[in-house]
Design a protein around this nucleic acid. Structure first.
Lengths: 236, 236
DNA sequence: TTGTCGTTGAATGTATACAAAACAGGTTGA
DNA sequence: TCAACCTGTTTTGTATACATTCAACGACAA
């Protein structure tokens, strides 16, 4: 197995390996995932490979046809852009639930710490250098995960996780690089926190939805930049 | 196999069998799903049973713990009520996409036919008898499925399907029995269709979301009625 | 050339034997 | 009495042999 960490079972290891390779793009859309080939490549039998493929098919990362096997699913750009709308609707709902149900002491502390860390990172952006992006990414993850936890709904959490686990849609990735954008984004984090603390569900939902819409726009811009770039080298 | 229709593979048959029995409540929350027991009961080997359990775990119907197996997941009433909010958010999005992207000729025809059938069924409710509910259910399914199809987004479709495939949350079930409710519900169907035809995404989304919220309220009422009922026989 | 049909091969579907891990019970020690 | 541990049993995890299905290829006839 080429992954560093070993999961409890081989099936889970293979699942992780496949997921990572699909999300990173190492396994491209349309690529057939044949059981024997994979099992030889990974040094396990067909059984855990089959289990992993089953899981990924249910998670929507690979397509399955009876008696024909699995292939990496196609993720059209328009659908990935839509995915941000879906994320926005779901995370908006999470913010609403959080505002309705309130935060635990720990969640409140975690959010405040994350907000403060973000403020600090933005203030020191210049001297932090490459570490800055790492820190800001962590802040982002903590804030969104905590709001989701505060929503207290397993099904919602699973759906948001599914919407994350697609190429190019993770909140683990900060698309934009402009500091101005990040400042606005973090300002929104503050406002989401305030709305939840004020127990204002409607406002919490609206801000969160707008927040994700902002991320979507940044991603669309970055995609356009990329396609313009590749357009120069390969116009077809 | 006790199910009537045979799927292409045994794995799929077992998956269907398990899903149906969980959704119907024949397999209750917490019930352990042991591979050998199931395979003997269904007359197949452990392999297809394992495959089915894997799929259902990914679909969120059963819980899995490594080396400990599977059990039917718990579906707390509050989470099932939340599920309607999730459905509302997602179906609202679908209506918005449909309004943005427009209907094909076929979709338009299908919606108009379903609306007319619903009108007719409501008008003749008294003399249709038990057939009435069946017809109205069909109308409901066609309308929601067609809007979803018009949204042209596979990921959204899959998520809505997942939110349906929980006990008590299907649009295949009409909770309310009051004709007045159904008339209002169907009136909303008309308005959703109009908003989509008018290419008004915001309005389409809002109406659809309200529409699902109405279904949620009817379901909450019906749950309260049921718990009051069972409360008489078993107050604890 | 084109269409149909049968063969062939490669892939998935299934069953089953064996390995490893978790649970339950009793035993032994303090 | 209680706790820790050892051990048999049960259950899941894995490997592999065999069955089945599908798709591609080529032969043959129109």
């Amino acid at each position: 197995m080429e992954t560093s960490k070993q999961s409890v079972t081989r099936s889970l290891s293979v699942t992780d390996w496949l997921r990572e390779n699909i999300l990173s793009g190492a396994l491209g859309p349309g690529e057939r995932l044949q059981e024997v080939r994979l099992s030889e490549h990974l040094g396990v039998s067909r059984t855990p490979v089959r289990a992993a493929l089953h899981s990924l098919a249910a998670a929507g990362l690979v397509d399955y046809a009876p008696n024909r096997g699995y292939m990496v699913r196609d993720f059209p750009i328009p659908e990935m852009i839509d995915a941000y709308e879906i994320r926005g609707a779901l995370e908006g709902l999470a913010a609403r639930f959080a505002a309705e149900r309130g935060l635990t002491r720990d969640q409140e502390t975690a959010l405040e710490a994350a907000l403060a860390k973000g403020d600090k990172a933005l203030a020191e952006a210049a001297l932090l250098g490459p570490d800055f992006m790492v820190q800001f990414r962590d802040v982002n993850v903590v804030i969104h995960d905590t709001v989701l936890e505060a929503a207290r709904n397993r099904m919602l959490a699973e759906m948001i996780r599914i919407s994350y686990e697609k190429p190019r849609v993770s909140n683990r990735i900060i698309v934009t690089l402009e500091i101005r954008e990040l400042e606005r984004r973090h300002e929104e984090h503050h406002r989401i926190y305030e709305a939840i603390m004020a127990r204002d569900p409607v406002r919490a939902e609206n801000i969160m939805r707008e927040h994700v819409a902002g991320v979507k726009l940044a991603m669309v811009r970055s995609l356009r930049a990329k396609s313009a770039q590749s357009g120069q080298t390969a116009p077809a």
